[in-house]
């Protein structure tokens, strides 16, 4: 499917004009993009490292997951909105940039994985990890740790490919 027309439309939009002509606003939006990414990945890393029994092992995992959920969504909205603004300035360049597409693929995979597998598995973490008492329908501890590792790998790729766009 050819979706270059989306980039052509973005390139010719008022958003693109604004991004190209206002350096001050662009740098501020860029800062919002980076801070949103830090918030999103920070919250995800916190949950994943908790599941790997690396950090905050004395705190029940349910408490950590419940308290980070809202900030994950706020970070996600932040990176998507600021990302659209940033990409409008170089839309035609991004249309053929392999690192941009790798980042988008990672982002899509990360969102789907987070909302489906990660969420389902973490809510059924066994007592040895979750420290919230025995659960009758808990999954194996090694599966929880494998999911945490896979999630960390996905978001590392999103961040690394995002930086790589700047060097390509």
């Amino acid at each position: 499917m050819d979706i270059v027309f989306i980039f052509e439309w973005l390139d010719a939009s008022w958003l693109s004009d604004l991004a190209r002509t206002s350096a001050g606003l662009f740098s501020m939006v860029q800062a919002v993009h980076i801070l949103s990414m830090i918030m999103l990945c920070g919250m995800l890393i916190l949950g994943d490292l908790r599941m790997l029994n690396v950090v905050l092992t004395g705190v029940p995992s349910d408490v950590i997951l419940q308290n980070t959920k809202k900030w994950i969504y706020i970070g996600l909205v932040g990176i998507i909105l600021s990302g659209i603004y940033e990409s409008s300035a170089i839309a035609m360049k991004l249309a053929t940039n392999s690192f941009f597409w790798a980042k988008m693929a990672g982002l899509a995979m990360g969102i789907v994985f987070m909302l489906s597998v990660r969420s389902a598995v973490y809510s059924r973490a066994p007592e040895v990890i979750a420290s919230t008492g025995p659960k009758s329908d808990a999954v194996d501890a090694w599966v929880v740790k494998l999911v945490a590792l896979a999630n960390l790998f996905i978001w590392f790729s999103v961040a690394a490919n995002g930086r790589w766009i700047g060097f390509s």
Partner: peptide
């Protein structure tokens, strides 16, 4: 939990 564990393990290993 058994099915979920298998699905999650396969997805994670592929990733």
């Amino acid at each position: 939990a058994n099915t979920l564990g298998k699905v999650a393990a396969v997805c994670s290993i592929v990733i």
